[in-house]
Design a protein around this nucleic acid. Structure first.
Lengths: 193, 193
DNA sequence: AAAGTTCATTGATGTAGGATAAGAAATGGA
DNA sequence: TCCATTTCTTATCCTACATCAATGAACTTT
């Protein structure tokens, strides 16, 4: 069933079809409707999710009810609340679907079950963690040092497909600005080009 | 020699004295003078460093020469440029010493050499990565959603010792504000208490 | 197709924090 | 110990972005 995930594991993790057959019984797919929430801020996160179709997001809500998007997860991305999953602590983030989506549900011990391909040491998991670390690092640097316009341009380069699929309201929330400001930033950008 | 590191490995990684003796030949200590740079933006990072004494920082410099501090590393912290180390790409960050410091130099393959303690799977490395991930996540959420004052209070809570050791200029650069603004924030805080 | 929502844009106005400048306090080097 | 440098503070003005409000366009829902 989970063909996108199978392909991902093969390409990124070097997992063969044979090895995949062994872990398939532990996997299952889940459909998530647009707007449906799969993790609520304050709950303990029990899974990670791999997105095969659609797009999810993780976000915080502050006291005033304002939402700040931490991460988008379109096809081939992982999403979860690492710290909650790892330490059984309450999650800082909520996770919901921005489009009708299909995900593979990954249990906490998935990577222990995953066979280690010949030749490779088990650093597939590390590669995933390292990549995430890098994208968070880049995000922090941009939040510290770049203007709203620079951050928007970076977003367009980093997620060219998403800029077509998501509303500006969502993109603004990811950039840390209001939708009104994003509208003005875009106006300025169009003027320049 | 590297007693602080030995203690750290024992407490956090479950490494026994006997096991430590096996890896000690691969370790060496390095003294870094205040102001000395050990990694320059654009270079490829070949090591990670574990701080035994003193304090280092990693930071970016923008086109105008303004510095933004990504991370502080006092005693018992790791510092490095993960992405550069991992993929042999040019580093986004520079690393230098804020105090006269003593570090353990850790090669890229250190964790492969590290013996796996009985009973534990080799998730010591994961725990380190997960903790770092969590602190970056928290930082992003604060940068997105909190005021300068809230971020300063969070800094005081997260690094109570550092607020005594570091100049306000450095703390401001970590918070993403100017030293003048931090001075005002502090004035307001004192007024309230 | 009408009515209710949500979304994007625009304008007017407000504000947190930046830029600049200058004096005071602390630190450091010879 | 004195001079130089760096750090911290305070004041004034400025700017990027927020807030509030209004309008039309684009969706949902019935």
């Amino acid at each position: 069933m989970p063909d996108v995930f199978k392909k991902y594991l093969s390409e990124k993790g070097g997992i063969t079809d044979l090895q995949f057959d062994k872990i398939e019984p532990f996997l299952f797919e889940r459909k998530i409707k647009k707007g449906e929430t799969i993790l609520e801020q304050g709950e303990v996160c029990k899974n990670a999710w791999f997105v095969e179709v659609g797009c999810l997001r993780s976000y915080v809500t502050d006291k005033k009810g304002k939402e700040y998007i931490f991460q988008f997860a379109p096809e081939n991305w992982w999403i979860s609340e690492q710290n909650s999953l790892h330490k059984n602590e309450p999650s800082l983030l909520s996770i919901d679907a921005l489009e009708n989506s299909s995900v593979v549900v990954i249990g906490a011990n998935f990577f222990e079950q995953l066979p280690v391909p010949a030749g490779a040491n088990n650093n597939f998991r590390h590669v995933i963690l390292q990549n995430r670390l890098y994208s968070l690092q880049k995000r922090i640097i941009y939040l510290l040092s770049a203007t709203a316009e620079e951050r928007y341009i970076d977003f367009l380069n980093t997620y060219p497909a998403l800029s077509q699929r998501l509303s500006q309201k969502l993109i603004a929330s990811y950039l840390g600005i209001t939708p009104e400001s994003l509208s003005r930033v875009r106006k300025e950008l169009f003027k320049k080009n």
